[in-house]
Each structure stands twice: as structure tokens, then as C-alpha cells.
Design a protein around this nucleic acid. Structure first.
Lengths: 165, 165
DNA sequence: CCCTTTTGCTTGATCATGCAACGATTTTAC
DNA sequence: GTAAAATCGTTGCATGATCAAGCAAAAGGG
């Protein structure tokens, strides 16, 4: 069940400053719509069941799988879509909720290291399987192996933003 | 130039609660990353050149192409990814900047109609071509006709969220 | 050494957004 | 007709995000 996205009357693709064609709209607006819907759903599930936002889940997950079990703020920021200052505040909230602690860094007195607490590890373990189930149900199971591969290939064509901040 | 997304050692797809495989991660995290990067870029362009956010541009665009030249708040909300309350505040900002006016609705005393001002129409006209150029440069030109069609088909498999609020 | 620059993080200000609660109005049901 | 229910939009509150400015520590250069 796929919507037909073919221009009936005109060209499939528009020229430089021209209005977007239905084909172009389908791909572009679709991306925006699907992102919004998926993030909203996954965030709601995580929040209802475990009191975690999607972004805080991602931070906990990174910490949980980090080899040293601890990460610098900038390291966390680099591995997510949050700015450094955004991550600093996120860590504030996680620490306020007792899921992580900030420790001053041995080798670099400016830096902070973020470490999961037992409670944080527990919350992560509790949330993890359910969240992955959600991601599969809402997104991944809709596509074949080949389609997921194609999609990943599409994403690789959009350069990552230079990250600073 | 596509990154190879194939599991070297294990299965391509994971079972229900299991960790995401590289294939799954490539599609899912890729979507999040690309959305973030594209929106940031397009928003920055619009903001720098015309003092508009991406979302306010979309609202102006809807108004500009609306047959009656005026839309209800809920109509705007339904056509975008903003909640009704979000749209109400967005209209506040657009009105504060003189780009639209709120008019009380003739047929329905509860409702508000939003109408472009001359200034709003001008700002939209000024912004439009450049923004479409940006969308094409950053996104659409990276894909063939067939690929855009495939992508639009993918999006159609994710149910739209029931919208209320 | 000390001064300058760079780096890593935090903080203040501001903005955007959603949900829930509300007031006003229209619609529905009797 | 009138009471109850539904609808439309706004607003209070909480959250989460950015940027710019600041501070403290580290790294470089004389």
C-alpha cells in the first residue's frame, strides 16, 4: 500500500527556484512528517513507561555501552544531536534525577566526566528492550532488509553538519 | 558513494527486544541525523536571509497558497506539524512582526482567521525561491527520480499521528 | 616563568513547543 | 427552547533547545 507519487500533468522534478513537484513534496514533506510522528511516539512510550525522554534515553544508552563506563560532556554531545550546552543541561537533569553523577576529570581539571549510577543503569536496563521493541514496531518492521540498506545509503549522501557549540 | 551497511558477523535484523544491528542503526539513526542536519541548515538559511524560521515559513507558505487567502488556526495546525496551541503562538509572533493579522471569524465567533499582510506577502515572495533552492541543493538533488519516489513510498508506510491538541 | 590563547564546560537570556485547563461559542439532544 | 456536549482558540506551566558570554584550567610562546 504505497501512495502513487507521479506527476500527472507536469515534470517530475522542478527547476531551481520553482515550486516543489508532488514527487519532491512527497519525499521532503514526508521526511519531516515521519520524523515528527516517530519521535513523538517513541518519546511518549519511553516517557509513559520509564519517565525518560528520547534524548535522555540516548545519553544513558551511550554511557551504558561506553567501554570506560564514563564519558566527557563533549564526547556525549558529539555522539548525539545535542549541542555541548544542551548536553550540559541534560546531564543536570539526569543528575538531578539520580541517574548519573558528574565527576571532575582526573587528567583535565576543566572537564567533567559523567558516570551512570546504579539507579541509572537500572532505569536503562528497564527501558531498553521496550524502546527497541517500539523502534521496530513503529519503523523498522515496515521495511525489508534491502529497503533499510537503501535508506541507510540515502542518509549517507547528506553531509553531517560540522559540529561545534 | 554509499556506506556499506551489512552486518559482517551476525544477522541483518535483530529480534524483538534485541540491540539494533548495524543495518537497523544505519536506517534509524540516519533518519534522526539527517533530519536534524537538514532542518538546521534550512532554518539557518531562511533566518539569515529573511528572518524567518522554517516553521514560520511553512505557515506563510500555506497562507500564500490558500485559495481564500485566509486560514483558521486549526487549519494551519492540521497542515503542519504544530499543535493548535503551538500554531496559536506562532501566529502571535507572525502578527507581532506584522506578517499576518488575526481576524475574528464571521461564521464562527470562537474562531480566528489568519490573513497575510502586504508585508507578509512580500517576505514570503522574497524568501520562497531561495528556500526552494536550498531544499533542492541540500536534499532533493542528491536523489534520482526513482529514489525520491521510493522514499515517498517509504514515508507512506508510517501512519500519520492522530492529530488533536 | 608569565602572558596569551585555546579549550571545556557552565550559565543567563531567550525562544519554541506540548499538555492540560479554561472561557467562549456553537452544535446537539431532548 | 434550554441544557449538555463538543469545538475553537488562548493561556499557565513545564520542558527542552540554542546562542552568547563567562570562567577556570591547560597549552603555547616569549
Amino acid at each position: 500500500m504505497q501512495t502513487e507519487v507521479k506527476a500527472g500533468d507536469g515534470a517530475l522534478r522542478g527547476a531551481d527556484g520553482e515550486p516543489l513537484t508532488p514527487l519532491e513534496l512527497g519525499a521532503w514533506r514526508g521526511l519531516l512528517r515521519v520524523h515528527s510522528d516517530l519521535v513523538r511516539r517513541l518519546d511518549a512510550g519511553l516517557r509513559a513507561r520509564h519517565g525518560l525522554s528520547l534524548t535522555s534515553y540516548e545519553a544513558l544508552m551511550l554511557l551504558g555501552t561506553s567501554p570506560r563506563g564514563r564519558m566527557r560532556i563533549s564526547e556525549l554531545s558529539g555522539a548525539t544531536l545535542l549541542s555541548v550546552s544542551g548536553m550540559s543541561r541534560m546531564v543536570d537533569r539526569l543528575a538531578r534525577d539520580g541517574l548519573v553523577v558528574r565527576e571532575t576529570c582526573e587528567e583535565d581539571g576543566r572537564g567533567a566526566e559523567v558516570v551512570l549510577t546504579a539507579s541509572g543503569r537500572g532505569r536503562l536496563r528497564a527501558a531498553r528492550a521496550g524502546h527497541l521493541t517500539d523502534v521496530r514496531r513503529e519503523f523498522l518492521t515496515r521495511f525489508s532488509d534491502d529497503e533499510l540498506g537503501a535508506m541507510a545509503g540515502y542518509w549517507s549522501r547528506i553531509e553531517p553538519a560540522p559540529r561545534g557549540g
